[in-house]
């Protein structure tokens, strides 16, 4: 009765869920597509090219790094693709392509691979790369007017620039754009952050696919909503101001796609809520009192650094250790 060609002998469990790293990353890429569609609609093909170059750069650097150091290839898990898309989404569409490549290098080689690869980075690669790219402050803040023609490959010169809703708010004024324009994505801003509707749609898809839970996005956005509602600047109407803050800048992109990054967020329930609240509070703090109009990136990066202590202090209760439940009668 023998004569099998090969039997796998492995420890239990012998059945596993269908989802693996690659399927999760694929879901994230799908969830990010609506935002890309809006970006191309609003900024033209350049938005697509910047994103594509960013993805190719990230994949290349990851492949190259692993090959040079003779480690097993990891580009199959598609996490480099996700990083590429997310990095592109936090850049203005006018960014020169060579700057994008530098950002890819920082994100993949420095923030991720040097620390050990996927699962080992202690800060969000796309966000830390973006922070490094602020070394070119003018390029990082050249906002193109929506629906104007832009060169697809060459770096735009003489851009018809405009102010983003966030820069209005920083100056203590209400944005020139309407709430509807901000929600749909007809304002200036970074490639992936302009359309709250598209990002929320992606978020709902991720919730449905159980890639993320509501805990971080809800506590993050909820905290920003609460603080901006209670403390509107410039004597504006509470609700109006709150909505403007929620729909401008990288809040939706950050709360739904960046703060929920597995590697750089807590694994405990309580920890995730604390993390979200911390991100929200820091975002508002930086937006109100910091010198940058945008607080989301730095808020998330700061909270990233606190993830391990948060995990340590929010350990779930181990079964059999609650005093009032021990024993019988």
């Amino acid at each position: 009765m023998s004569g099998f060609s090969r039997l796998t002998l492995a420890p239990s469990p012998h059945i596993k869920t269908e989802e693996d790293i690659r399927s999760i990353m694929t879901d994230v890429v799908i969830a990010l597509m609506p935002a890309l569609a809006i970006a191309v609609f609003t900024f033209g093909m350049r938005a697509f090219i910047v994103t594509a170059v960013s993805v190719l750069g990230c994949v290349f650097f990851e492949w190259g790094y692993r090959k040079v150091l003779k480690k097993p290839s990891s580009i199959g898990d598609l996490s480099a693709v996700v990083t590429g898309i997310l990095l592109a989404y936090c850049l203005p569409v006018t960014i020169p392509l060579w700057v994008v490549i530098i950002g890819d290098f920082v994100a993949i080689v420095i923030v991720k691979q040097l620390f050990g690869g996927i699962g080992k980075n202690f800060m969000n690669p796309a966000l830390l790369a973006r922070a490094v790219l602020f070394s070119w402050p003018v390029m990082m803040a050249t906002w193109a007017e929506p629906r104007t023609a832009l060169p697809v490959f060459k770096t735009p010169v003489d851009v018809i620039s405009t102010a983003t809703p966030l820069s209005y708010l920083k100056g203590g004024n209400m944005p020139a754009d309407s709430i509807m324009e901000m929600a749909l994505g007809q304002t200036a801003g970074c490639i992936g952050e302009i359309s709250a509707v598209a990002l929320v749609a992606g978020g709902l898809y991720l919730l449905y696919r159980r890639v993320i839970t509501l805990r971080i996005p809800l506590s993050f956005i909820g905290t920003v909503a609460l603080l901006t509602f209670l403390f509107p600047k410039g004597g504006a109407d509470n609700v109006q101001f709150m909505l403007c803050e929620l729909l401008s800048g990288g809040l939706m992109l950050g709360a739904i796609f960046m703060a929920t990054d597995y590697t750089t967020s807590p694994v405990t329930r309580k920890g995730q809520i604390i993390f979200g609240i911390g991100c929200g509070a820091l975002t508002v703090f930086i937006r109100y009192f910091g010198s940058y109009p945008e607080g989301v990136s730095y808020a998330i990066l700061i909270m990233n650094a606190l993830v391990w202590p948060i995990d340590k202090y929010t350990r779930p209760r181990v079964f059999g250790t609650a005093r009032h439940r021990i024993g019988g009668r």
């Binding site: 898990d77 996927i118 694994v267």
Partner: peptide, 29 residues
């Protein structure tokens, strides 16, 4: 074809292990 083994098992810190542990442990750590 049902076998789900990876050549490079890697932890991505997703935390699913923590949420399903019936004993309240943290497999990740």
């Amino acid at each position: 074809k049902e076998d789900k083994i990876s050549k490079n098992p890697t932890c991505i810190r997703c935390g699913r292990c923590v949420s399903v542990c019936p004993m309240g442990l943290m497999p990740i750590y």
